[in-house]
Design a protein around this nucleic acid. Structure first.
Lengths: 164, 164
DNA sequence: TTAAAACATCACAAATTTGTATTGATTAGC
DNA sequence: GCTAATCAATACAAATTTGTGATGTTTTAA
């Protein structure tokens, strides 16, 4: 269970974008690179993914830069992380769980009775509730506010799968 | 945020081990490979990791095989997944979060004021509470029992970090 | 109109993970 | 003792992810 590099750095960049958004100023890839200690090329790649996903808007030319597409209060952490999930192979939407196999067989041997899938469904449901409820603004507010926010998440309700 | 292949297949193998444990019989790598549709070599690798971590005990020779070191009621899912975390680079114990960088700098630019670390601390705390509370036995019991189990997890209490 | 600063896109090298192969050691049964 | 089945350990090839490079386009301002 790991956070990919793109997710970690992507979220950091998103936080920088959030700060500049609140000041209503554009921020360039090189500025973010400087602030985060990353290479300009790497930040550019992240911004490219953000733009394709509609997370940022870009302005070309000298004095150009990037701007978060919505206010930090309106972006959940999940929305940011999902930008990178699509480029990854085994991602958290449970797609591919039962099709990717190191294996001697072309189809999942648990097709009819899979004991693993419900586990991930439930665990990722908990995870999603947390990630959906936290906004970029919450992250900017600091640790104790974040902690409070997480405590307020409702974990008791039915999962999507169960409602089907 | 993704589950690695070793984690997914490792947990499946652990479930097979749990079933045989309840029958008090040894199970060989080739048997598990057959049951899970994996190659014998791959299962052997997983068993090797399990044994090094003390999750299974092995018996050599013809009629040898593997046996879960404790009963399925006494193994949490987290204990199983942690076996594979140690072989991975960025793992869920938060080690390395602030030392691995795609970067132009040798140290984390957020050393003094990191806005990302508290996020992962909190999120992984929630995750750990779930993974620690689910046993292999719970997984064998099926989806609805599992669902109930997850609902009973206490998410409100302080995190380890906060108690420090 | 030219130059500089910035984004856009794609290609590619390095690192990591994934899965297989190989060789060796151990045990049971004949 | 010999053989077959099994675990033990390590090496290695393929696939994937990670991060950089190179080339081109757009815009502003002198």
């Amino acid at each position: 269970m790991r956070i990919t590099s793109l997710e970690e750095y992507g979220l950091r960049c998103a936080l920088q974008l959030a700060k500049f958004k609140k000041k209503s100023t554009l921020v360039s890839a090189s500025q973010i690179a400087e602030l985060e200690g990353l290479s300009v090329e790497y930040v550019s790649k992240i911004m490219h993914l953000f733009r394709k996903a509609g997370v940022v808007e870009s302005t070309r030319g000298i004095q150009g830069g990037f701007s978060l597409a919505k206010m930090p209060t309106d972006f959940s952490v999940k929305e940011i992380l999902d930008v990178f999930a699509v480029t990854q192979k085994g991602n958290d939407d449970l797609q591919g769980f039962c099709t990717n196999h190191a294996g001697t067989q072309s189809e999942c041997v648990h097709k009819s009775q899979c004991s693993i899938r419900p586990v991930w469904v439930h665990i990722f449901d908990v995870f999603d509730r947390v990630l959906c409820s936290i906004t970029l603004e919450n992250l900017l507010e600091g640790s104790s506010a974040l902690s409070e926010k997480i405590r307020s998440v409702n974990f008791a309700e039915q999962t999507k799968e169960e409602r089907k």
